[in-house]
Design a protein around this nucleic acid. Structure first.
Length: 471
RNA sequence: GGCGCGGUAGCCAAGUGGCCUAAGGCGGAGGUCUGCAAAACCUCUAUUCGCCGGUUCGAAUCCGGCCCGCGCCUCCA
């Protein structure tokens, strides 16, 4: 159980074992949602991957401390709350609740701490003051504060910025990258730590030593990770799009202020594509959990789909993949039932049983697609042995437990769902059962068709029937 | 223009020098079961890894070229 989990690190570009620096608690910070609308399935890919990483770390025997922030003060939350004529708090509260509901449905483990940016403005101001003192930041003409990128030479390491900007300048001097809309900055590369109040911000302003305003986006993560995880911590995660500029800026702010190394490991998840394209409003392919459910699929099926690709690879989401997930999950459910039936009394067995290769794949760079492959190799073998009567009660009980460990590892909630059957449907099914017992096949078949017309599938089982809503 | 990623069966997706005459899921085709079905389970389903060269005893895996697709390049997970 002491297997070290190995994971690719964006900064060193190497596979490295994950170990808590303090030898006790693995401290991880994940960039959370901006609560200005429903989170889309691409957002959830990232959160589910972080969830899978955490579950894997915990299954390896580590204790984790998982911090995931909520961005509830930024351009988008302000703009949208103003447009809807709501206070920022009312507006973001609503979308945070929605996010929590979705997270629950997807069986995301709640983070141990979920700090809100707007509730940590004093900490952010303190950080800015520190950066100004150390010459890493300056107050511009409009009372905004900027980070002086030139004051922090390692800037750009995470995103290989050097290779990029140098060539960009060489190639096209009129690149759009240079079009700064804030001309108060010393350099176009400098970014805002504190934004002075502007009319369009409405009532959303906080006092600061530099006048009323609000924090810049990157600042919250530096301030809150410092608050809840300390100067340096074990892992920082987010989507690939955050590598630059968000995480680059976080590193500059945090290391500039503390003089100490920031996150020890960087975990970035690739994007989810829909039908081979990036999700976007204009392509009308930006789906949310509600859409998935409205198509008759479950959050678990989405979780399965999102786990079916490797985190460092863009994953192509299609509606077909949800069907595939449905069938795959049903097979897992069936094995659980079959194992339970063949099981003797339970006894504690902490092993992975037939699922050892699943665990091996997860600890090797969180290879979830490989792990699912190994899972079904084991499923197939176990079903075969069960049907051949080659699995004794003791082994079956052990495998049943191991299977549940695998379900926990993936966060799959697989249990028999008791569907409520309307009385009239129940009556039709009962009538059909009676007809079958009377060997009146024409009547039985008519009733089956009637049930199907009303949206219910009836299945005969040895002692009666089962009803399932038509997919 | 720069940086980066990828092209593996109808679809999704592992594998990155020999265990690959390529894992797994879905779908499809047969079968067992069934009054018939359905569900479940079993069997089969790429001699081949975008194309062309090269390196090597040996390549899906390494190198070069080409053709496609995708992402990023200052506040998008």
């Amino acid at each position: 159980m002491t297997t070290a989990v190995r994971l690719y690190d964006t900064l060193s570009r190497k596979l490295r074992p994950l170990e808590p620096a303090d030898g006790q608690t693995f401290r991880m910070y994940c960039c959370g949602p901006t609560v200005y609308g429903p989170a889309h399935i691409g957002n959830f890919r990232t959160f589910i991957l972080q969830d899978l990483l955490r579950r894997t770390l915990e299954a390896s025997g580590l204790v984790t401390r998982h911090v995931r922030n909520v961005t509830d003060i930024d351009d988008k939350t302000i703009r949208q709350s103003q447009a809807e004529d709501k206070t920022l708090e009312t507006f973001t509260r609503h979308w945070l609740d929605a996010f929590h509901k979705d997270g629950e449905d997807l069986n995301l483990l709640p983070p141990h701490v979920e700090p809100s940016a707007v509730e940590h403005i004093p900490q952010q101001i303190k950080l800015v003051e520190k950066l100004i003192q150390q010459g890493h930041a300056y107050v511009a003409g409009d009372q905004s504060v900027y980070f002086r990128v030139d004051s922090y030479p390692p800037y750009g390491r995470l995103s290989r910025l050097h290779e990029r900007t140098i060539t960009t300048r060489d190639r096209s001097s009129c690149s759009c990258v240079q079009d700064a809309d804030e001309y108060d900055r010393e350099s176009a590369a400098d970014f805002a730590l504190w934004k002075s109040h502007k009319p369009e911000d409405g009532p959303n302003r906080w006092p600061s030593p530099w006048g009323p305003g609000r924090p810049g986006w990157h600042l919250e993560c530096s301030a809150m990770s410092l608050e809840y995880l300390g100067d340096d911590f074990d892992l920082h995660g987010g989507g690939v799009d955050l590598i630059f500029p968000h995480h680059e800026n976080e590193i500059a702010q945090s290391e500039g202020a503390t003089g100490r190394p920031f996150a020890r490991h960087w975990f970035h998840s690739e994007h989810l594509l829909v039908d081979g394209r990036k999700m976007s409003k204009s392509l009308n392919n930006l789906y949310v959990l509600k859409d998935i459910v409205s198509w008759g699929h479950t959050p678990m099926e989405l979780r399965y789909v999102l786990a079916s690709g490797h985190y460092r690879q863009a994953l192509n989401f299609t509606r077909d993949s949800l069907h595939a997930a449905h069938s795959a999950l049903r097979r897992l459910h069936q094995l659980q039932i079959d194992l339970k039936k063949a099981s003797g009394p339970e006894h504690a067995d902490p092993s992975w049983g037939s699922f050892q290769p699943v665990w091996a794949a997860m600890t090797n760079d969180l290879n979830t697609p490989r792990a699912l492959g190994e899972l079904f190799v084991a499923v197939h073998e176990l079903e075969k042995r069960l049907h051949a009567g080659q699995l004794d009660a003791r082994s079956a009980a052990a495998e049943w437990q191991a299977l549940h460990k695998v379900f926990d590892l993936f966060g799959f909630q697989i249990e028999t769902q008791s569907v409520s059957v309307p009385d009239d449907i129940r009556q039709l099914a009962e009538d059909r059962l009676a007809a079958r017992r009377a060997r009146d096949w024409p009547t039985a078949d008519t009733l089956r068709n009637e049930l199907e017309a009303r949206g219910w599938i009836v299945r005969d089982v040895p002692d009666g029937y089962e009803l399932e809503p038509k997919p």
